[in-house]
Design a protein around this nucleic acid. Sequence first.
DNA 1: ATTAGGG
DNA 2: CCCTAAT
Length: 630
Amino acid sequence: MEVETLQDAEETKNGGNDFEENGSLDPVVYQLVRVEGDGTLVPPTEDEVLQIEQFLDDKVDLPSIDDVGNVEDFFTNDCMLLKEPDFEEGYSELETNGEIHTQQFDADLEVDRLKPSDDSLDIPSKCTVVHDHKPDTEQGDNNIVHQDNASTETPKSTVLNDSCSAEKEKTDACSRSVNNSSTGPSVSGVTSSVPDFSILRGEVCLDNLTIRELQEAFRATFGRETTVKDKLWLKRRITMGLTNSCDVQSSGCVVKDYKIVCKDAKYELPTIGGIPKAEVEATSLVRYQVLGPGNERDTPSCSYYRSEDQQRSSNRLKGVSTDNDESEGTLQDEQGAAKRLRKPTKRYIEELSDTETLDSTGKLSSPGKRVAHGEVLLRQRVTPLQEVDSLSITYPTRKDTFGGFSVHVPYASRMRRGRPRRNFISFLDDDPPVECPEVQMAVETMLGKDGEHVNHKNAEKKGGHIETAEKKGGHIETADNKEIHSIEPEDICRTDAKTKTKRGLKRKHHRAWTLSEVLKLVDGVAQFGPGKWSEIRRLSFASYSYRTSVDLKDKWRNLLRASQTQLSPENDGVCPRKSNPSIIPIPPAILLRVKELAELQPQAGNLAAAIKFSGQSSKAAQGRGSSGFP
DNA sequence: ATTAGGG
DNA sequence: CCCTAAT
């Protein structure tokens, strides 16, 4: 599969910084397409969209323009270009060992990339991000010419040698657009060539390689560039990559058939806060294209590698010291892979497919959303929650999303990785002024944390607000979908069908049940009986406009389950689920009540009577102070 | 419009 | 949470 992300148009005039500050600018727009064997572009499959989407969600940091290249880089790259012969030697030497196709660098590859075909690249998958203006023939030509010039125009080449600070790969040079003064330091610098995997074949004694070769090997191993000049680090890193092991000596390593045959020796690598010094500056170069046999984890590989870089770079920029450099990369890799490999739920797919149809109108993602910069992303709603009731259980929690489920987790830092509601596309397209998201957020923060004790009035008021806002939004959306876009029939049908309902397919915002809500529910059940959910909702949940009777019913069901599971077998108090410290179990006291009520119900058809005459439950219900009544 | 249940 | 059949 080959997925390419084409950049529609780069409208960035000045650096990427201002679109960082005001996300509405959308300086870079990506479109997902699939590159067929014959080089034609076709819309992506849902799966592909999904993958990319997921990636974008996870690694929101799109490269800012200034991340990519600067004048210095170009000089550097030119230098490297000139060093080619030097490198070529070792390269071909290794080549003989390997059975991978010879791959040419520079212009040839550039052409390959631009004109994808079932050619020499014996590579399972490749992902590229290309700028629309990139394929301009003149640029390609320029590149080639440029290269030629370089190789003939030798003057400086002889001077610049391995000792030269420029340790970048010549491929960089060629792929840079020459006339980039006009286009600005565009992201087109991301063009890349195929790593030379042959370097990794057979027995590789990293010790014998030059820095350059090491870098190449690095690229072949990890699919990304590095400018690190630290041989030791490179070797180690490569070995780690090849052997999938963190336990690698920093030198004396021989990798044979992807296994380490380490001799010995050990030094400390020059690092900055656990990070290889050299690598600190190495991350500015963003490479999108990653292809790779060596890359076991499939498809999203490209993104994932790139993101690794970015993540790390951003970490560094923020001065976040990474605890363990060695394993960091690998670990992150695995984690990233794990996350990304996770199979999407049916519903998620559906939602996405919906998005996809909208995407065909132009944009897949809005950088405004995707490009979440630290501050934005890290901002989390921390809501110290005070639960004061007869149970006197206090849990400082904050609302969070965990694996798709919102839960209250103990006060602890964790990034919120919510994905933008897919509606935001329509919002963007048609009705920017709609302030639903904000309103919702606001309300969420107010209500999400149990507005109960805090401010009933406010909560109520806000709640009302929400509803109107939502309805309004929904209206607008459906209308727009119908009238403005001429979307696929299916879509129209859907919206048509759902038109009556507010906002077509939008999923209700997940709201974790708070303790107090649970209590209210329990009380409500105690008083009105299970099944009287509309009643309970009306009376006990007047201030929680977002809890429908169905919600109550569902929650009750869950509570019942919990009470049975979590209570009866006496599970040592340990949550049946993996003792996830961030999930606060429902206090046994509540579960007990639930259980009582549950046992109580089936017998007594008339609940009110049951309550009245059941000493325990009445006591419990009253003890709680009839919290549910406004 | 509500409920009950399955997903 | 969502969806739907059954009330």
